[in-house]
Amino acid sequence: MAQNIYDDPGFFAGYSQLRRSQEGLDGAPEWPALQALLPGLNARRVVDLGCGFGWFCRWASGQGAAEVLGVDVSANMLAKAADMTDAGAAISYLRSGLETLSLADASVDLVYSSLALHYIDDVVALLGMLHRALVPGGRLVFSVEHPVYMAPANPGWIVDAAGKKTWPVDGYSVEGQRTTNWLADGVIKYHRTIGSWFALLRRHGFVITELIEWSPTDAQVAANAALAEERERPMLLLIGAERC
């Protein structure tokens, strides 16, 4: 079972102050690139894994999705999502760990996930279940922390005397658990290489259609100078895949 760090009061309080928590999709600089991987959603059945405050669920419903299911392990997240969702919307929320989630066979057209799958240890079982749940030709679109970002035992910029920042990369080929301190101590994630993501998806009957090592655009850096450092190393990996 994945760690439910989002129900830790201190972590949840800090997470709630992040720009992407307060502004939703518009506050996530990778959203335009991720959105470009999505198929048309009109009359589609959509599942959002690790739905958080439900921002994507509400966007998908607004795009004409017939049914939207948001799944999250955090009671805090789901309570906030429900409070922000209009009554009568074709959106439902389910509290479940992703390792134990079960969806009916051939019941989904799109599975979406933003920054959730790197918290999952047994991603093999999850991908197998998702392949069964998606219709032939259905899509899986997700983002995770980039393996270069996740690999270090002590992630954080190394700054030289001239102020130049360098991101340390150690243990890249040693996959498995990483424990970091971010908003709270002892946050557990699971590092996988790009090659492993490719192999896992292919083994479970997916064809990768897009793979993006996300970096901010010139326009984004011009609008927000703090994003410039994200060009020094990739922070996010975006993947689009199709169920064979």
Rank of each mutant, 00 (worst) to 15 (best):
A81W: 06
A82I: 05
A82C: 08
D83P: 00
D83I: 05
T85E: 10
D86E: 15
A87N: 07
G88L: 07
A89C: 11
A89T: 11
I91S: 01
L94R: 11
R95C: 13
S96N: 14
S96E: 14
G97H: 12
L98R: 01
L98D: 01
L98K: 02
T100H: 12
T100Q: 14
L101E: 02
L103K: 04
A104F: 00
A104V: 02
A104S: 05
A104W: 00
D105P: 09
D105Y: 03
D105K: 12
A106L: 08
S107D: 04
D109H: 13
D109W: 01
L110N: 04
L110C: 10
V111T: 03
V111D: 03
V111Q: 01
Y112D: 09
S113K: 02
S114V: 00
S114C: 00
S114K: 10
L115R: 07
L117V: 12
L117T: 12
L117K: 09
H118A: 05
Y119M: 10
Y119F: 15
I120E: 08
D121T: 08
D122L: 09
D122N: 15
V124H: 15
V124A: 15
V124N: 14
L126P: 01
L127N: 00
L127S: 07
L127Q: 02
L127Y: 00
G128C: 09
M129T: 06
L130V: 04
L130H: 00
L130N: 02
H131S: 15
R132Q: 13
A133E: 05
A133H: 06
P136S: 11
P136D: 09
P136W: 06
P136I: 07
G138M: 01
G138R: 01
R139V: 05
L140R: 00
F142V: 08
S143Q: 04
S143L: 04
V144G: 06
E145P: 03
E145G: 08
H146K: 13
P147V: 09
V148A: 11
V148H: 06
Y149I: 06
Y149Q: 11
Y149T: 04
M150N: 13
A151W: 05
A151V: 10
A151P: 01
P152Y: 14
P155Y: 13
G156F: 10
G156R: 10
G156K: 12
I158M: 14
I158Y: 10
I158K: 15
D160I: 01
A161S: 02
A162Q: 14
K164D: 13
K164T: 13
K164R: 15
K164H: 13
K165P: 05
T166Y: 00
T166K: 09
T166D: 07
W167T: 15
W167K: 13
P168Q: 10
P168M: 13
V169M: 12
V169T: 12
V169D: 11
D170K: 03
G171C: 09
G171Y: 11
G171K: 08
G171N: 12
S173A: 12
S173L: 14
V174S: 10
G176C: 04
G176Q: 02
R178W: 09
T179R: 12
T180N: 09
T180C: 06
T180K: 10
N181L: 03
W182V: 05
L183M: 15
A184I: 15
D185L: 08
V187M: 07
I188A: 07
